[in-house]
């Protein structure tokens, strides 16, 4: 009930990684500008991370600050920097932008693939900061009441009833070990193999990967009995259990 006026949330952002190999400001700026000019809309105000972990020779604080300014001047937004934790420069605390933890970056080719004029000094990589977290199953023991909404990134198991006016959603399967009287939407991110299982089918709506059926139709197939819902050739099938 407290109203703090904000919410703290986690977020994943795709950024560009500028990996410096040799510090030669003019070369870097020249070749970087060339890259930017090829696909200006891609780089316009793009968040960028400067990575100095591949530098054979170190870099001085003044040089690094000039580099940040020059990159910013090209219209990129420098959001942080990376460095080999083993070779952290003594001046690391003096840098105004955040020092980010090292991560595994995979190089991907950005646009026009025809022009393979990569400068040996500057490698531009796109880092997709995505982690594959195994989607845990969410287990709920309390009844889901009217007006409540529950979403699971994996499977959703409800050991109670889902009231009329409640909504349960999952990227995976939905199991309801009670009466399903509200709405159940499985495979909401498009998984056509997702299924819905319930002990008593009394749903307002069931949906799998966007294919839905309303209670009027359900009543003619299985009603107030255990059932599963699955997608066969783009059409919903309601099968008694």
């Amino acid at each position: 009930m407290t109203d703090s006026g904000f919410r703290l949330k986690g977020s994943v952002v795709t950024t560009v990684l500028l990996e410096i190999q040799t510090f030669s400001l003019d070369d870097i700026v020249f070749h970087l500008k060339e890259k930017i000019d090829q696909v200006p809309h891609f780089f316009n105000q793009a968040p960028i991370i400067i990575d100095i972990s591949k530098m054979k020779r170190g870099i001085r604080l003044e040089e690094f600050e000039v580099l940040i300014q020059s990159v910013s001047a090209l219209g990129l937004g420098v959001i942080g920097w990376r460095c080999d934790p083993e070779a952290l420069p003594v001046w690391n605390a003096s840098v105004t932008i955040p020092l980010l933890p090292a991560s595994k970056a995979r190089p991907i080719n950005i646009s026009p693939a025809v022009k393979e004029e990569t400068s040996p000094d500057v490698v531009v990589k796109t880092v997709v900061e995505e982690r594959l977290v195994p989607q845990a199953t969410k287990v709920i023991t309390k009844p889901i009441r009217s007006g409540q909404q529950v979403y699971a990134e994996g499977d959703l198991i409800i050991l109670n009833q889902v009231s009329a006016g409640a909504e349960v959603l999952a990227d995976g399967n939905i199991h309801v070990y009670g009466a399903l009287r509200g709405r159940a939407l499985a495979g909401v991110k498009g998984d056509a193999d997702a299924r819905i299982f319930c002990k008593s089918m009394e749903a307002e709506l069931v949906s799998i990967a966007g294919n839905f059926m309303l209670s009027d139709a359900l009543q003619n197939i299985v009603w107030k009995d255990s059932a599963q819902v699955l997608l066969v050739d783009d059409s919903l099938e309601i099968v008694p259990l």
């Binding site: 009441r145 009217s146 007006g147 409540q148 009231s163 009329a164 006016g165 409640a166």
Partner: peptide
């Protein structure tokens, strides 16, 4: 009954 169900949800969440 529907409104009572709604208030039960609020009791257990708010």
């Amino acid at each position: 009954v529907r409104d009572s169900d709604r208030i039960l949800g609020i009791l257990q969440s708010k």
